[in-house]
Design a protein around this nucleic acid. Structure first.
Lengths: 144, 144
DNA sequence: GTCCCTGCAAATCCTTTGCACTCCT
DNA sequence: AGGAGTGCAAAGGATTTGCAGGGAC
């Protein structure tokens, strides 16, 4: 084992990840951290994310879009991945049966799991609304 | 939609995948198909695998090793991934609670899921045996 | 003949690494 | 001082894509 020294960059990465809920990829995190550390490099972000994952402070997962997503480790929960916009939403455990509510009548298909995450694929409410507006522009503002 | 014409290459890929149980990556499949079609290209293999996946005849999944694995679609089942040698084994549904038997007392950690697959990570029996032999060479041939 | 499919190679995308330098401790 | 950690840029590996020729219908 090696001695692990403090670094502002790692702290910022950890902190950033802890305060967001969108399960970012390394690159998304990089873009975000950059506003605080304009000179940080993508390599550093990757190195720290992998280090934190080994330490068990964060987790890595793939949801089928070709790149790895990171998540601050809290307690086990479900993830819902929108097939249209790629958004990854958290779902509390115990909601599986009710997932269809979330997508406004749509279907959620069980996806991938991690030791603390479970995935469902479907289309999020936003995308569904957007799509129906494109198909029938006349009902913009679906206020009942 | 486009017309889909027959191709010997696609047929061979499909057939090959259907008759193996090791959930190969595109490259592994490529090496195998090559014995039948020495000139087939990796690009063709990828194109067909993605096409078949879209048609729902096969499925794609990632088990955390950086590349995508393919599986002929049959019925839902579990997968066990060996953390040491990377082998991906099939487990019938209903075996989850007994996964530890399979790894000879080791622990199997729930991993990722796909619409028809569930993953468990651990160390396969072969690797465990190999490791214990390295640690105590005197007990080669563990015949009781 | 038309359009899909292939082989090949170049291009892309994501991630890792080597190196010289800087910052903790 | 000693060794982690960093930035940069180059390297790597997996997958995709453009193009010209070949095959299915």
């Amino acid at each position: 084992m090696k001695a692990l020294k403090y670094s502002r960059q790692r702290e910022s990465i950890k902190n950033n990840l802890m305060h967001r809920t969108d399960h970012p990829t390394a690159d998304a995190l990089y873009l975000s951290i950059r506003t605080e550390f304009p000179n940080i490099s993508l390599g550093t972000v990757y190195r720290n994310l992998n280090l934190l994952a080994e330490l068990g402070e964060i987790s890595r997962f793939s949801c089928g879009d070709g790149s790895v997503h990171f998540d601050y480790v809290t307690k086990p929960h479900y993830h819902f991945v929108c097939k249209s916009c790629g958004a990854v939403l958290d779902l509390p455990f115990g909601m599986v049966k009710k997932t269809s509510d979330l997508v406004d009548g749509g279907e959620a298909v069980p996806g991938r799991v991690d030791s603390h995450t479970v995935f469902f694929y479907g289309e999020c409410a936003d995308c569904m609304r957007k799509k129906s507006l494109e198909e029938s522009p006349e009902i913009a503002d679906p206020e009942k």
